[in-house]
Design a protein around this nucleic acid. Structure first.
Lengths: 248, 248
DNA sequence: GTCAATAGTTTGTCTAGACATAAGTACCTA
DNA sequence: TAGGTACTTATGTCTAGACAAACTATTGAC
């Protein structure tokens, strides 16, 4: 394997508000993704690199750390730093189905079957961490992709976070609305399972009875740990699968 | 909300090989998880804290950064650092079914149905990034939990990475063996779907024909981007679901 | 020739500061 | 009362260096 060592030259704008370490990290990332820094390329050592770029070592190190975290570089003490695989960059994990479909050009469409403010079942109230009997948004939607029904979605959202109306929900996706309302979704725990469709589900989704469905239960928290949303969805397994990337 | 500010005292062992920043991070994590540092608690500012613990600010900062990354603390410039969520710590994401079951006390057991070295189907060779016709380990296993069949697993592993034998596979789980062979699994991309069981699958898994199954296709890469393993598994949906935590 | 000690290279950890910037608060003025 | 200005506070960024530890390669001894 050719372990070429390339002298790096990166322009740095000290008058920019963008932190220096980030300028370097971004430019390195760009070059790796563009193939200008081939897989296997060994970077110069940190001391040399820092001097060449006119930065202190901690600052340069921070750039490299950023890219190591994202899986674009590996470091080994006593050995050096090396480019690995533009292969799988960590995807934007906390995305919504609507956003995913939009990006994939699948022309999502949403039919709002129900939008009410009422007390949810106790199990949902527990998941939402509100007192039983508290009224929340109860939302039932049917999501289409390319005019084919894809998923039946039940969502529960505290009324304190955002104002929902049917019109906007039809065109925007719940997560977009939440973000627009200033909610920063930070972490989600979800459970993915499978079961056969009930007659009612089959009818709504255009499947036959007993067809396999993917089920997803999700609780989303914001950056200070408040519950933002609880969702309980079923997807047609014939038309949808979850893709995810795990890192260690 | 009571924003109590607690003076922290953490013992630090400078003779330990464990880095100082990590000693602090671990102890903080422990206290948050144990509830000794309640949600909403505000930490003292970094200057004071560093001095109290006898550390430099960068070192202390590094501890805090670590916990911010893991979602246990939030920082706001000009405001301070605050405890959030003992709730969901990022799980060890790249774990194997065997490890998960062990941890949960589910007494996993593995029956090796087939262990061969042969050329896999082309689609698998492509996923493994080896030339078609290259011989690899082909592995078919039945995983039990509490003596109930749970999953039927097909795996493909390059012969260059590890030496596999039936005896060890029955007692250890593939990932343990890989790790023991010095393979560092770094990132995995997987697809989770569902379908109904075929007659053969139903028989092996002790389900009835047409029972819903969860399917998982996974490709695992090591720290330098080599393909370590390709797996194609089916799980009894009646007895298993994927739990995962997503962060943004 | 084989194995162990050693020297050199490179990343990992840590220190002690400096200045910048965002968020909140108090005050002052229109 | 409303609005903006100045001040305070705390995190964000950056510097210049020191020593430690892991890995590689070479050298030397048996």
């Amino acid at each position: 394997m050719p372990v070429t060592e390339t002298p790096l030259s990166i322009p740095i704008d000290r008058s920019s508000p963008v932190p220096l370490y980030f300028q370097v990290a971004q430019e390195l990332e760009r070059r790796i993704m563009a193939g200008e820094l081939a897989v296997g390329t060994k970077l110069e050592n940190e001391l040399v690199l820092a001097e060449r770029l006119g930065l202190s070592r901690p600052t340069l190190r921070r750039s490299i750390e950023y890219l190591v975290d994202r899986g674009l570089l590996v470091r080994k003490r006593g050995v050096g730093t090396q480019v690995v695989m533009p292969r799988v960059r960590r995807p934007l994990e906390l995305s919504s189905l609507y956003d995913d479909l939009s990006r994939a050009g699948e022309q999502p469409r949403t039919e709002v079957l129900r939008l009410a403010v009422e007390a949810p079942p106790d199990a949902i109230a527990t998941a939402l961490e509100v007192d039983p009997g508290t009224e929340v948004y109860v939302l039932e939607r049917l999501r289409y992709a390319r005019d084919e029904p894809l998923a039946l979605m039940h969502n529960y959202v505290p009324t304190t976070l955002v104002a929902l109306d049917e019109e906007r929900l039809a065109h925007q996706g719940l997560y977009q609305l939440l973000r627009a309302a200033g909610v920063t979704m930070k972490i989600a725990s979800q459970t993915i399972g499978a079961r056969n469709a009930t007659a009612a589900e089959a009818r709504v989704l255009g499947e036959s009875r007993g067809a396999p469905l993917l089920t997803m239960e999700r609780t989303v928290y914001d950056d200070v740990g408040r519950v933002v949303e609880v969702g309980s969805h079923v997807y047609r397994a014939s038309r949808y699968a979850f893709e995810l990337t795990l890192t260690d």
